[in-house]
Amino acid sequence: MLKPLGDSALLVELGAEINPAINQRVHALNALLHANIIAGIIETIPAYCTLLIHYDPLQLTFDQVTHWALDKLNQLDDSYHRTPRRIEVPVRYGNAFGPDLEAVAASKGISPADVIQIHSAREYTVYMMGFTPGFPYLGTLDERLIMPRLETPRTSVRAGTVAIAGSQTGIYPLDSPGGWQLIGWTPLKLFDPTSTSPFLFSPSDIVKFIPVEDDHA
């Protein structure tokens, strides 16, 4: 369950599937570790079912880091509860904002309005961040919208584009290549390096999409 990743990181495995309960434990452990931080821990990367701990081998040995992490893992109570931040994201669905909306609807045998309704109905958790700075991997998507990635990724996707792939949904923070199905766009800025809080989202946040008409966003 605790394994080295090279000579300066420790991987804590809390499960082997994408599942809200396991991901909750990842974020809970992450919060507990940060509340009891020790010198030499550089940063942590929470993911779906793992937590990667980066440490400085000039200050800590592998055994010291393992001991610290294991100790906190044992203190992790299933009743441990945090109140996550909740962020509302206005989205213009379809047309040029979400060029794959029609195709997604057609392949699922439902209307574009149904896709919008289903996608915006539930609250999602930021399971992890990665790919490019500020990209949130949100889950879990309603089974009725599960779509494969595009066979040929687009070379350029506009920043703010809302997309789906597999059981996940996400938002592209930067103009970048992308292989997900594009269904909408938000004017919110997900990444602003000059701001004191550069990222709109953090791992474990709750996200709710709010459909808006063209002239309101």
Partner: peptide
């Protein structure tokens, strides 16, 4: 693999 953290040299 279900995506997880990596490091330089992985």
């Amino acid at each position: 693999l279900i995506s997880e953290g990596m490091t330089i040299g992985s």
